[in-house]
Design a protein around this nucleic acid. Structure first.
Length: 291
DNA sequence: TTCCAGGGGTAGA
DNA sequence: TCTACCCATGGA
């Protein structure tokens, strides 16, 4: 089944896929040539399907191999590529500043994300205090140990649902996922969702203020200021910079001394409501890890 | 052996 | 609000 999904004029497939390392984390699989993004996705019926996604003029062509309801495929692809995100105001802002005017020219701004906040939260936790190669390993072990396999190819699996993680003990999860001290955080988030104490997907609601959303994200185990700010970006909220070791280093160089997180935040204050997006694309242009 | 990576949690000041 | 310390992991 092929589904064509119209994309906004200010959308660029490659810029979105390359906006950060998510394309290299299972169940995404990026093929540089011929520039195809694959993803194993489960649609709630216990069967996984392979999606292959290509960008072409004004649309995304999605081939679904396996059981995949069309409406659900469209909904999830729109989330992954942030197709409903209105970034016109961001482009207007960038166009006025010489240092940022390349952003609208390149049609940067949208960042590949996961169809669920649960998956993004787990992946962000797996990026904290570790190297990128280890992040890939952690995510791969979660997918390969707990995800629904693709029919006929058990080696390829979807990202596990919360109940697939919560169905095993913390000890078993830790043994298979090997996330170090992060094991308990991921297992508890999954368990809280399954037992009805947490409804992460409802946090996508635009009625929730950014301040409230940030507080909610911080309340999750394993999610601190850095991880919460990353997730805010994926949800289209850019008021908080995800200050990391690179940001501290970069601001420190500018100021000629070591800086506190507060000083790093203050450095990006002039970029107002867009500061996190400005930092994100600056950081990836200057120093993208090998992904 | 020690350090470090796209930090987080906690105690104590 | 800030600082110090500890928290697995595994490659360099």
């Amino acid at each position: 089944m092929r589904i064509s999904i119209d994309t906004p004029d200010d959308f660029d497939f490659l810029e979105c896929v390359n906006a950060h390392g998510w394309r290299s984390l299972l169940p995404f699989c990026w093929d540089t040539e011929p520039k195809v993004l694959e993803r194993i996705e489960e649609f709630g019926d216990g069967n996984a399907a392979l999606l292959t996604i290509r960008g072409s003029n004004g649309k995304l062509d999605v081939d679904a191999h396996g059981s995949a309801p069309e409406q659900d495929v469209v909904r999830r692809v729109k989330i992954m590529f942030q197709l409903d995100l209105d970034i016109a105001r961001f482009y207007t802002y960038c166009a006025k500043q010489p240092a940022l005017c390349h952003i609208p020219q390149l049609r940067q701004g949208r960042i590949l994300r996961s169809p669920s906040l649960f998956e993004d939260a787990v992946k962000v936790i797996a990026t904290t205090n570790t190297t990128w190669s280890r992040t890939k390993g952690m995510v791969a072990r979660i997918v390969e140990s707990f995800g629904t396999p693709l029919p006929g190819d058990a080696a390829r699996r979807a990202f596990p649902r919360p109940d697939q993680i919560a169905s095993v003990t913390l000890e078993e999860f830790s043994e298979k996922a090997r996330l170090g001290y992060r094991n308990a955080s991921v297992h508890r988030i999954a368990t809280d969702i399954v037992e009805g104490r947490l409804d992460l997907e409802s946090w996508r609601d635009s009625e929730i203020t950014s301040q409230d959303l940030y507080k909610r994200l911080l309340s999750l185990p394993g999610i601190g200021p850095y991880a919460a700010s990353c997730l805010m970006i994926y949800l289209g909220r850019y008021e908080r910079v995800n200050v990391d070791s690179w940001a501290r280093m970069m601001v420190g160089k500018e100021l000629g001394r070591s800086v506190t997180d507060k000083e790093a935040h203050a450095f990006f204050e002039p970029y107002g409501e867009w500061k996190a997006l400005v930092y994100h694309f600056y950081r990836w242009r200057e120093s993208a890890p090998e992904f």
